[in-house]
Write a protein that binds this DNA or RNA. Structure first.
Lengths: 345, 345
DNA sequence: TGACAGAAAGTGAGCGCTAACGCAACGCTC
DNA sequence: GAGCGTTGCGTTAGCGCTCACTTTCTGTCA
């Protein structure tokens, strides 16, 4: 909270000036040798490189960024990282950007809109070349800051809504519809939506909304909803399932907001004596590696995490290069496994 | 790879000078109003705050860092992020540090020592207040850079070896010993080590080494080893298990390098007609949420990821505050579940 | 031989901020 | 009312680098 005192470390690091002095050239020449080597005589370049090496020179990006007209920072804001699907997105994104000499600065808002705004501010204070952020529904202040900054911004994971600039993600309403349609096609009739839904998790709401719309159109009983603002883990799944069954014993098809929650739901159903998929179908969203190895193997929707990361990186590079904003819809697929019955012909 | 051209965005951002001009005070006064509010008249402070708000001022950390004697960046180097245990460590670390106004800059070396050195260089170029890095076995160049920089450095996850500065982690040899001892206590006699072992993953080697030592001391047949440099996932587990059983059909106890690999091993054993835990025991390392929900539930070693993240953050803060380097051994626990037999009395 | 490109290196200003110092205005003491 | 510390703000000097501009050097050709 406080602006703690942070003294810089030990002895002063070598500067361009100290390298220049050692070689007997001007600071500018050393700078050029680093930034535009072809403008410096090969022999001089060699001597400069030697001095750089000898002094163990590490450039000062603060000075470089302040003086120059370019920045090589990309600010990234995620809503969670802990064993989350976003970890894979950030991983891919970071790796791709680093190949273009762009450094990722990471922030985790923990599904807190206030924190999100703070983070956007903090990251913008580094004058980044671009920003990437999970979702399209932000704290209005954060949106304003991003717009006002003029920094190219890529919103990831979700493309439903008015993007600030570019968006790379999925249509979560469509995913929700597909989940409900799948359960209905398998013959389930009394559906529920179960899981952790944080205040700022609008994607979950969009999926639930999509499912509810399909159910209404099919004339079935309305979607039962059992959610909690707690983090999504298997134990929450067990608890939510118990509450759900107590209130709606007729439920025979469950959409879980995440695979982790589904693991608990599967066990809860077993404990309640309901067979999966015969008595009750379960479909989720996420598909980490473990899901295919569960018993029963979990039917779920798999987002293309690497694709989102890669395309986001491409979009960032394109925007930095001056190209127009993009809006990219990224594929996802329904993995039909053992936790739902075969679809009826 | 190339140093692409990265033009900065749109209209120039407001500076302290523009705020100062609007209020009719000097630049320094505005700076003071931000950094040391008590040194400025309350009424003036209010007017400055109003102007700050109006112009939507975002401080320029590049300039601040260059001019000042403190930095608020912490460089963090991990070896992987994708659904990895390090995600949780980074998550906790980042959250804790942010409360002290420290920004995390993230790098992912993907278990590549060369890349690790590049990352350390890149992060040091931001003149960070501290560095955090996974492991204690680095590229010698990286170690030199860190030492020479004088920046407080916390090595995380592993404490076996000579730390550069501070270390917060586990004794992986001890974990390997515990894994082997557990299998032996359960009555398994022909043990193997299976998993993905990347070139730079010395922690895995230490665990395997610890297990081998216990086995030798117990006078059992030597530890069979079946590893691959590929990333650790269930499908690799299935393949490695097949290779292992082909070569060593007598195996009855398997130490997996990660839980993800163990999922594949469990299924492979089932396919090979070996009952778990009756015919073959399986123990792993990691314990993501899914492991307790596998069938059979996976016996595994659970590191205290949040503790490592939290203690690392504390150590960083302490080092920044001038306290001495620390070396903290963090707890882990063996989760005895269904994939190993009950231990013999 | 002199003029003249073009390449190679140097000069000077300034990016936006912080920090040490300076100095007026005020209240307090004796 | 002279002396003195305090408060509250301005002045000045950089931090280490980049960039536009200028100067010097090198080689070519009339």
């Amino acid at each position: 909270m406080a602006n703690d005192s942070i003294p810089l470390s030990g002895r002063p690091a070598p500067t361009l000036a100290s390298v220049a002095q050692r070689v007997g050239v001007s600071v500018n020449t050393v700078s050029r040798a680093l930034r535009a080597p072809q403008t410096v005589r090969p022999e001089l370049k060699r001597r400069i490189d030697a001095a750089l090496e000898e002094l163990n020179y590490v450039p000062n990006r603060l000075a470089g960024g302040l003086a120059g007209t370019r920045s090589n920072v990309v600010g990234v804001v995620v809503t969670s990282l802990f064993y989350s699907e976003f970890a894979a997105v950030v991983d891919t994104l970071q790796t791709q950007l680093l190949q273009h000499d762009l450094q990722v600065m990471l922030g985790n808002s923990r599904y807190d809109l206030q924190e999100e705004q703070r983070l956007v501010r903090a990251l913008l204070s580094w004058r980044p070349a671009a920003m990437a952020i999970i979702g399209v529904d932000h704290h209005p202040g954060a949106t304003d800051l991003l717009r006002a900054s003029g920094v190219p911004t890529v919103e990831m994971w979700d493309i439903c809504g008015e993007p600030i600039d570019s968006a790379v993600g999925m249509d979560h309403e469509a995913i929700g519809r597909a989940q409900a349609e799948h359960l209905i096609a398998c013959g389930y009739r009394h559906l529920a939506f179960v899981g952790s839904v944080r205040a700022a998790d609008t994607r979950a709401r969009k999926r639930a909304g999509g499912a509810a719309a399909v159910i209404e159109a099919a004339g079935l009983s309305p979607l039962a909803v059992e959610t909690s603002p707690e983090g999504g883990n298997p134990s929450l799944g067990e608890r939510l399932l118990a509450a759900l069954l107590a209130e709606h014993p007729e439920i025979d098809g469950i959409i879980c907001n995440s695979d982790a929650v589904a693991y608990g739901v599967l066990r809860g159903l077993e404990a309640a004596g309901r067979r999966v998929p015969e008595d009750c179908g379960v479909i989720a969203f996420g598909d980490p590696e473990a899901s295919a190895y569960m018993r029963p193997a979990l039917t779920t929707v798999r987002p293309s995490r690497e694709t989102i990361g890669r395309v986001s990186a491409e979009t960032i590079l394109a925007r930095i290069a001056g190209e127009a904003p993009r809006r990219v819809s990224v594929d996802w697929s329904l993995q039909h496994r053992q936790s739902t019955r075969p679809a009826r012909a």
